[in-house]
């Protein structure tokens, strides 16, 4: 579904991604793990078109998308739910969701609202409330619901569990699995490598802009290197 081949991405003078290649197959949950500054968010921003790779190729559904506008990429079903939620705090929950469906035909809007409210019942209770007044967990649900409104074929999730209470983290990961089971492919960036490896099919480990390890999520979760470096224990 997604094939990234040898991309190099620069942030000004900083060489943020170096000859990086990954693939994501239809139906998978793939997770990217790695320390802060390893280039995980940079990779997601490159996939959604916020950043342009200097060299290398990005193919989505068999077509090259590197260099296209964000709008064109969103239209093809690659949707990026950014780090830090980035909900529109000055607008209501309902309006936020509506903006998520910006490029959809208004015909499917009612059904999409229903689907999102079914996944996140809390959002239905709060639909007239300003997004800025929601708790951190609710804002994360809103950010994900908003992304789902855009009919993602591939959903990029950047740190969905960041700053959330452990119970909510469980909720968020359960919902990611549900969304995936309903047919959406997921590329997940997480600090919480332990949880991410539990729900993912495959994983890539990034270090300073390169892929240093890749493989089956279960195997990586059991590997001693990963345990000591990312899972905080032996």
């Amino acid at each position: 579904m997604l094939s990234v081949q040898g991309i190099n991405v620069f942030y000004g003078a900083i060489h943020a991604l170096k000859d990086l290649s990954i693939t994501v197959n239809e139906g998978e949950i793939v997770t990217l793990i790695g320390a802060n500054g390893a280039g995980k968010s940079t990779l997601l921003k490159t996939l959604s078109g916020l950043l342009k790779p200097k060299t290398g190729s990005v193919d989505f559904l068999g077509k090259p998308i590197a260099g296209q506008s964000v709008q064109a990429i969103v239209k093809q079903g690659l949707i990026h739910c950014p780090e830090g939620r980035r909900v529109f705090a000055n607008m209501s929950v309902e309006e936020n969701l509506e903006l998520g469906a910006y490029l959809q035909n208004s015909g499917s809007l009612a059904a999409d609202f229903e689907m999102v409210y079914k996944t996140f019942p809390r959002l239905l209770e709060r639909k007239k409330q300003l997004a800025g007044t929601l708790s951190g967990g609710e804002q994360q649900m809103l950010a994900m619901g908003r992304a789902l409104m855009g009919h993602p074929k591939l959903l990029l999730l950047d740190e969905p569990s960041m700053g959330l209470a452990p119970l909510l983290v469980q909720d968020i990961f359960r919902i990611i699995q549900e969304v995936n089971a309903a047919g959406t492919t997921v590329l997940l960036v997480e600090q919480n490598a332990h949880q991410a490896l539990k729900i993912a099919h495959r994983a890539y480990v990034l270090e300073t802009g390169r892929v240093v390890l890749e493989g089956d999520a279960k195997e990586l979760a059991d590997s001693e290197d990963i345990k000591s470096a990312y899972l905080g224990g032996h």
Binding site: V70, Q71, V74, H80, P82, N90, M91, L99, Y102, G150
Partner: peptide, 16 residues
Amino acid sequence: RAVSYDMEAARLMGIN
């Protein structure tokens, strides 16, 4: 309103 609040997030919605 979305663009004036957060231009990058607005772009990710597919807003021109």
